[in-house]
Simulated scan of single mutants.
Amino acid sequence: MAPAPLLAAACLACTLAMFGTGLSDLRQMLATQSVENIQFLPFLATDANNLGWLGYGCLKRDPTLVAVNAVGAALNTLCVLVYLRYSPHKRRVLLRSLALLAPLAAGYGYACRYRPPMDPAQPGQDRYRPSQAAPGTDPL
């Protein structure tokens, strides 16, 4: 096996294992029906991170980014929802979630609305690096 695919597979496995670290907290919340001694911010921050990378992967049409971050976003969204279900302070949890996710949604909406057009004849091209860019210029 070539080194690049082997490294990609190892990174994919480590990333998915990292997303699974919240499962013990999820199991504890479900068993005790309480969020006592469980931090909310790591779930929310990781969820926002996954959703951001998922959106980026969709814009770039990168199946690896989409697959990995879809799994992470699903697991962390589940943790956020279970935390919300058992939290006695639902309003505070919702406000924190909205405060973090609203700019993410606005940025994704902006990127979708104002992205440069793509040539349908080149399905793998990068949206943000047009193939006809002037020499010496880099839009990113």
Results as ranks from 00 to 15, higher is better:
Y114G: 06
L101V: 13
G72C: 00
A102G: 05
R129D: 14
L41W: 07
L41E: 09
C11H: 10
R61I: 00
Y83I: 02
C14L: 15
L94S: 05
P123D: 04
F40A: 05
V80W: 04
L78K: 00
G20Q: 05
L44E: 01
V82L: 07
A134D: 11
A2M: 12
R27N: 03
A111C: 06
P116K: 04
R127E: 12
L104V: 05
A13R: 08
A9D: 06
F43E: 00
P63Y: 11
V71S: 06
W53A: 00
P63T: 06
V35K: 00
A31W: 11
A134V: 14
T77D: 07
A134M: 12
P130A: 12
L6W: 11
N76L: 06
Q125P: 00
A74N: 06
Y56G: 03
G22N: 01
R91F: 06
L95Q: 11
V80N: 05
R129E: 15
Q39K: 08
F19C: 07
N69E: 04
A70H: 02
L30W: 13
Y56A: 05
L44G: 00
D62Y: 09
A121E: 06
Y128V: 03
L65C: 05
A10H: 08
G55M: 07
C58D: 02
L101A: 13
A10G: 14
L6Q: 10
R85L: 11
S97G: 15
T137A: 10
L7T: 09
L95I: 09
L30M: 13
Y110C: 13
E36H: 13
L16G: 09
V71D: 04
C112L: 13
R113S: 15
D119R: 01
Y110T: 10
V66F: 03
G52D: 00
K90H: 08
M29F: 05
G107P: 04
M118G: 14
A48T: 05
V35N: 02
T46H: 03
L12I: 08
Q122D: 15
L51Y: 00
E36I: 12
L41Y: 04
M29V: 03
A73P: 02
C79I: 09
Q39V: 04
I38A: 08
A9E: 07
K60A: 09
F40Y: 12
L6V: 13
R92D: 10
Y110F: 15
A8Y: 10
C79V: 08
T32F: 10
L6G: 09
V71R: 02
C79H: 12
A99P: 02
L51Q: 00
R96M: 14
Y83G: 01
L65F: 08
A31F: 11
G52C: 03
G136R: 03
Y114E: 12
F43W: 03
